[in-house]
Amino acid sequence: MGFSAADIEALWLTLRLAAIVTLLLLMIGIPTAWWLCRTRCRWKGLIIAIIALPLVLPPTVLGFYLLLAMGPNGPVGQLTEALGIGLLPFTFGGLVFGSIIYSLPFVVQPIQNAMEAIGERPLEVAATLGANPRDTFFNVVLPLAKPGILTATILGFTHTLGEFGVVLMIGGNIPGATRVISVQIYDHVEAMDYAQAHWLAATMVLFSFVVLAILYSRKHLMIWK
């Protein structure tokens, strides 16, 4: 026995999803974290709360509202239709969008903490040496926030790998498009095919364990406070 063709397809889809989502999360998360560090905007607390919501909401609740938002009457749906992308629910694109919202706090928080830990002084030093803010961001802030960015990358990736509730609500179970590992495992269990479920589940456990073991044995760990 081993992985079935459908298992391989689900594995591959999941890895692709996690990689794309992690990349986009970093592109969104790094500037967002820096903005949250520097801003004196009075809505800052509110924005942090909104980003953190997926940490506490049941995934089905989040998935339900994402489904509505991406639907033909939702704001996201109307936007994607106007852009000619069509509707996102039950597509790979919808999964990417949902996963970004779902995993955003796991990326923003470690990066924001790492950036806040840098303090004012290195930024002032860079300015007195003639570095403009952009130069300072790329050559002082990013290198110093590296441990936090690494943590964020790993958390964002693994969190997307294991996502189930949101996927089920907005993506359903379409082979090759939205059927990710967690859904595939669920299907195996539903069909009482425990042996097949074991293969995938054990793979997930092993993978997550290895990643976390590497992460936590690093010297400068940067998980949020």
């Binding site: 290195p122 002032e124 030093v125 860079a126 300015a127 007195t128 003639g130 403009n132 590296k146």
Partner: peptide, 20 residues
């Protein structure tokens, strides 16, 4: 004029080498 365009050198009280 923002600090980075002022032609000055600044030595802070505590050692402030860029740690990375």
């Amino acid at each position: 004029v923002p600090t980075h365009r002022r032609t000055l050198g600044y030595v802070f009280q505590e050692a402030s080498l860029l740690p990375h």
